[in-house]
Design a protein around this nucleic acid. Structure first.
Lengths: 225, 225
DNA sequence: CGGGATCCGTTACGATACTG
DNA sequence: CAGTATCGTAACGGATCCCG
């Protein structure tokens, strides 16, 4: 938001002056799962015009949320990644996602599949629910592998597989969506054959318990409505 | 955002489809401190056009975040207040504010004074820092009185004075701003005469400690930048 | 006077085409 | 692939007017 700023003496307004523009927070959402190239972002943000994506990235760079790094190689290809300032938006993005989740709880899965979105969603789900649990799981879904690790107060998810996972789960995106939205639990998914599991069964069950715990919290806070 | 929706299968996008429009989250911010009338909102949101404020309130009402209630009296005056769905946005708004606070830490106070904004800011500051502390303080500032109460895991602030506060503080808005921004602590403010205190001195000191604790956390997370 | 509705110029956005 | 250029459309901002 270069021109239309609120300029209020208010922290929320200051935040929105940086990330309140259309598409901006969704770009940040993507980058919260790691660096990305222009084309990655353009794919993950269906409907954004290329000039607008350029504009937003320039704004974010100017405001110190995003750093642009030229990739090695002959072609002048850049990679965009969050600075520490940008990354520190994660709690706010997760809080917004926790609020917005209620409209997905009963929604059918919709294309296109967004690996980064699911990585972030899992991080948000597990952040409040998996304290103390030490888990390391790879989730194979479509072409992608999400590495999920929870520890003491820390949850990390990445698009890279973990080297030594306690277990590996394999499924398609609609199944993962149903799982994250709390429409399906692991038992049922395995029973109906939409998910395959290898590795330690107990690890998977603790993950399931954590996810279901997170949904209990979500449903409880959404039920007031 | 009626027309331009993201429509993605993503909780963040769903949230932004409801509160991602310009001004919308600032309207919610205002209403988080209690019901308000059209004119109150218009005053608190300098620069918003009246037609736009009307439009946003209608959108929020349609999406179930805001309820419109006719006030008693001959004139057909309405009051707008958040529904439970709307109120459940508070964590996200506070998280955004915590992130945006860094641009206020070294900024000079700017008009206009926004009592509701300060009430919310205090809530955000104390939410993470005053656990266990039982405090009840009235803050007299300008024409307004902010009632601040912290208890076990709960912080409430309102534009109403508390009936039996442990202490009462009196100051002007720039002083309150400096306090909330961590530019000034209570000792200094009292010493320089910009603040008057009555009631239990210990209560005020515990409040001071809580605020300074909150700023330690803020500075720590912002220092990474 | 509070609470809007209407009108209109300006800015931002969205779609597509084009270029190094 | 990573943008730039162009252009029609939708949203915003400011002012004015209206109505009880």
């Amino acid at each position: 938001m270069a021109q239309r700023t609120y300029g209020q003496y208010c922290a929320v307004a200051q935040a929105l002056d940086r990330v309140g523009d259309r598409w901006t927070l969704l770009i940040v959402r993507e980058l919260l799962s790691g660096a990305a190239r222009f084309g990655d972002l353009h794919t993950a943000l269906p409907g954004i015009a290329t000039n607008l994506l350029t504009q937003r990235l320039r704004d974010l760079e100017r405001d110190g949320l995003v750093r642009r790094e030229p990739l090695p190689g002959p072609r002048r290809v850049s990679s965009y990644e969050l600075t520490d300032v940008g990354r520190s938006l994660e709690p706010a993005v997760l809080a917004l996602g926790a609020w917005g989740m209620r409209w997905l709880l009963d929604a059918p899965y919709a294309e296109p599949a967004n690996p980064r979105g699911f990585a972030l969603a899992l991080r948000g789900l597990l952040a409040g629910a998996a304290d103390g649990e030490e888990l390391a799981v790879n989730i194979e879904v479509g072409e992608d592998v999400l590495g999920v690790r929870t520890g003491r107060g820390v949850v990390t998810t990445a698009l890279e597989p973990l080297a030594r996972p306690g277990a590996t789960m394999s499924m398609c995106y609609p199944t993962l969506a149903a799982l994250v939205a709390g429409q399906l639990d692991l038992e049922a998914a395995v029973a109906e054959g939409s998910m395959r599991i290898s590795g330690e069964r107990a690890v998977v069950q603790r993950l399931d318990a954590a996810i279901r715990g997170a949904h209990r919290q979500l449903r409880a806070s959404a039920a007031v409505s």
